[in-house]
Amino acid sequence: MLGFIVRRLLIALPTLFLITLMVFSLQLLLPGDPALALAGEERDPAVIEAIREQYHLNDPIPVQYAHWLIAALHGDLGISLRNREPVTSLIVDKLPVTLELAILAMLIALVIGIAAGLVSAIKKGSRWDFGANVVALSGISVPNFWLGIMLILLISVRWGWLPASGYTSPLDSLAQNLEMMIMPAVVLGTAIAGVMMRHTRSAMISAIHADYVRTARAKGLSERVVMLKHALRNALVPVVTMGTLQFGELLSGAVLTEQVFTIPGFGKLIVDAVFNRDYAVVQGVVLFTGTVYILMNLLADLLYYLLNPRLRA
């Protein structure tokens, strides 16, 4: 068990290293002198030189990288050019918003995706199966921003049932917060639900034909127990793994969806940063989400391992 985690961590480290390299080289590739950008209105050569010194811009690139990496490891991702705030605190501010959105979307995806996959596998070839497949395929192929705009037009603009955009912290008002989060969560969740449904369906179909399911029936267990315990338990292994990876993707910010609903999460943070050439923020967010993504991969492996007694021997 411990050996497995250590092995996986050792594999994750080089990937992480590559990400830091790429994120760091971002600032080298950007046109323009970063010292000038940092100086803002200031044009005094002495000040600019001071900035160069302060940010190690005169050092050789590997040394710059080392400085940057050490700072990053200490949680210092630099200062946002735009609002002079530490990037880390910007990320910490936005994290709860994106996290909440990701969790809501994931719940929706799990409930709809697994239930629909289960029904369509058990009733394979029926109208239920057909319907679920059509809905799943649309869920997968309809672009999120389009679905988001349609929902806004219908539910907010025409019927006025839910606010079109904005954000209230759940600490201020949970009800208001949910009113604003539910549409973007549905948009993100249904897209993933489609993928989940397809995975659950195919895993269930092969589980249903497994010998151990026949054994379970031969024991006299009810069809419900046979399906929900014996077949689903095995079918869920790949589904859980896939869900974890999807969650990692959600955490890296649903850029378009957040933009459509003007939700102040990672997606918005990174879009604003790109438009403002606020490269420290871009670097910080990419580094952070990249790390989260690797951790989610690690978690997915771990879950797969835990759900698979055969691997635990």
Binding site: A210, D211, Y212, R214, T215, A218, G220, L221, N234
Partner: peptide, 18 residues
């Protein structure tokens, strides 16, 4: 599983691995 029970040909796959 009560009045009648069955043993299958494939012992390797007849028990649930989970």
């Amino acid at each position: 599983g009560d009045a009648m029970a069955m043993v299958f040909q494939e012992p390797m796959t007849s028990l649930n691995p989970a």
